[in-house]
Design a protein around this nucleic acid. Sequence first.
DNA 1: CTCATTTATTGACAAATGTCAATGATTATA
DNA 2: TATAATCATTGACATTTGTCAATAAATGAG
Lengths: 196, 196
Amino acid sequence: MHQILRDKLSPLINLTEEQWTFVLGHAKAKTTKRNEILLEKGDIANYLFFVVKGCLRIFLINDDGQEATRFLIFEGSFGTAFPSFTLRQPSSAAIQSVEPSEVLMISHADHQMLMDTVPGWERMNRLGLQQDYIDAIVRIESLITMDARQRYDILLKKNPKLIQRLPNKMVADYLGISQETLSRLKSKESGSRKGG
Amino acid sequence: MHQILRDKLSPLINLTEEQWTFVLGHAKAKTTKRNEILLEKGDIANYLFFVVKGCLRIFLINDDGQEATRFLIFEGSFGTAFPSFTLRQPSSAAIQSVEPSEVLMISHADHQMLMDTVPGWERMNRLGLQQDYIDAIVRIESLITMDARQRYDILLKKNPKLIQRLPNKMVADYLGISQETLSRLKSKESGSRKGG
DNA sequence: CTCATTTATTGACAAATGTCAATGATTATA
DNA sequence: TATAATCATTGACATTTGTCAATAAATGAG
């Protein structure tokens, strides 16, 4: 399990064997069940997750029980309830394991410590943050400039595994539309596709 | 002009006099006219801007001429067409000076150099990036969970200067709604305001 | 494998928002 | 201050999307 994390990071940072041992030693393995909650709304996110296998979902839930998916984290990616993890505040979002998954967890304290002590760790973190921020900007742009049809088509093109693997309603509330609207978009595929 | 930047940064980073001179020496001052374009769509963003006075707008424009405001940068803040600046790719967004403004510009090359040579500069940058990313997440959430009325009310509460200072249509395309819808939201203020 | 539960689809209708057009207000600039 | 240009407001209507409800399909747990 730790080897997969090492394989993921080694193109991004150069560490000695001792440093690898040190770093990986601060990543706790956990196996989750389907729909298991890893962070309750209202709690402070104490862990950064690396998904080895499966998928995590970071989502909001309002008083009516209506959900909205902020982010999805698939194999090979890091994620957490970022504002809570960073600002040490109660999280407005919850984290759930969509599928039975295998994750590695790094605590906030350890993560801070690694940035202070492991050369290159902070830079790697900054570069990851840059990309996450860019992805967020792209998502904002799709939300302010496109309608549901366009957003769905782009997601289908750029991230088909997301649509294939997740229940319809999670895809819908990730796109910011209702389940029914998504279902209708799927039935009449975009453009013209004669003869079924 | 440089003093204002120094006042802004000094709580965030500890530098010697020589370091301040070095850093500020890489920030070129520029005065802009109303509506002046600082970055054309399609060009690579070569500068990070710090707004001393005025306001910059980072916006998208589609083939129909329809605009959408990605970000607004007021006095005391940094900003640029981030994906382009970071990835060194042609920008999908343009940058415009909404009002006559005074800005300081740091080139991409200088910014990289400062991160490599000035102790604390990279950390300060990472912390700024964290906050920008959090702001982007909050904006995504407002877009996927709220209707136009709610988004407007929150903006009015959290960022009234934005609504006061900018033309209606910029506020509208920042919120991802049409100018007319915004106008209607403004006329019937939210909740009940009898006899107004 | 079976059944209870969850999820997806579809129709009818309602609500929100966009578009187009006309008019009125504002404002930059000479 | 005049005036041309820009911007804001409003009405009528079209379109998109949401909500509710019924039914069908899929699926996980035992």
